[in-house]
């Protein structure tokens, strides 16, 4: 118990540097958090992102079965397709019924919907090229392809990962030095105590313990505050893009990770990272400035 009191007193004595250290850790962790959220979102969406690579080709509703199968023939003959599935008007209508209220659909039959093909291309096929080929087929009135939003999402997350990743590494290094400096100052303030400890026969471990604990405490406080900020910010973010209370929220074609699922992992990482950082910083200060 004594030692915890010691640690808090010493950190309070150097509160300006202590706060700066904590602040820098918070900043670093939040960047790590952003980085983490993107990684989690990507892995959460990996299955769904695969679906995005499918191309949906809608057939003119006026086309009869013969003309529809002509479209299919052209698509298959083209040779770039790995997989093709036909969705009839009836099937499309069944799908729509699952989503919309019966009242809205009252009086409507399958005829108002187009039949369509879902197509997946072989690897290394230029999708844009294929899309314009399909668009120009007779009786094709629309081609849906999400490649662009997929690319956008992938690109965005790539950039976020690079920027957040390198910034958090930089901030990590900065935090390391700041925490180490804080510990060095508390050490300087207690050089007498260290000398006394030495000649009364305190072990090296006992002499170092309060300094290590100081580093760990700074890290712990930083992680705690960063977790609170992160949890608040992410749930706000989640609510902002989705209806209140909704569990499925989309942004730029990506499904956001539900608040609880994502963030627990990130908090664990926060505490892990910052406590290890605090210990490393203390070790650094001890190695440089404490002669036991």
């Amino acid at each position: 118990m004594h030692i915890i009191g010691e640690v808090i007193t010493n950190l309070f004595k150097n509160r300006v540097l202590t706060l700066t250290s904590i602040f820098s850790i918070i900043l670093m962790l939040i960047l790590v958090g952003v980085f983490g959220v993107f990684l989690l979102t990507l892995s959460y969406n990996s299955e769904y992102m695969d679906d995005m690579l499918e191309i949906r080709i809608f057939i003119n509703p006026e086309a009869d079965d013969y003309r529809i199968s002509a479209v299919e023939d052209s698509l298959i003959k083209d040779g770039r397709i790995e997989y093709i599935a036909y969705i009839s008007k009836e099937q499309a209508f069944e799908d729509v019924k699952k989503i919309y209220d019966k009242e809205i659909l009252e009086g409507l039959g399958p005829d108002f919907l187009p039949a369509s093909y879902t197509v997946r291309l072989k690897e290394d096929v230029d999708a844009d090229n294929f899309v314009s080929f399909a668009e120009n087929l007779r009786d094709v009135y629309r081609v849906d392809f999400h490649q662009r939003s997929f690319d956008f999402a992938a690109n965005l997350s790539n950039w976020v990962n690079i920027v957040a990743g390198s910034l958090s590494v930089l901030l990590g290094i900065l935090s390391l030095f700041l925490v180490s400096n804080t510990i060095r100052l508390t050490m300087a303030g207690r050089s007498d105590e260290v000398i006394i400890m030495k000649f009364i026969g305190a072990t090296e471990a006992r002499i170092k313990k309060p300094f290590i604990l100081e580093g760990v405490t700074i890290g712990f406080i930083g992680a705690l505050i960063a977790s609170l900020i992160m949890s608040f910010a992410y749930s706000k973010f989640f609510d902002w893009f989705g209806a209140e209370g909704s569990t499925e929220v989309f942004l730029a074609g990506l499904r956001l990770v539900p608040v609880r699922e994502s963030v627990l992992l990130i908090y664990l990482a926060f505490f892990g990272i910052s406590i290890v950082l605090g210990m490393l910083a203390s070790q650094m200060a001890i190695r440089r400035h404490l002669k036991v």
């Binding site: 000649f199 026969g201 305190a202 072990t203 090296e204």
Partner: peptide
């Protein structure tokens, strides 16, 4: 080195 504290006591 690790015995020194006990020696100093």
């Amino acid at each position: 080195r690790y015995e020194t504290p006990y020696f100093r006591r």
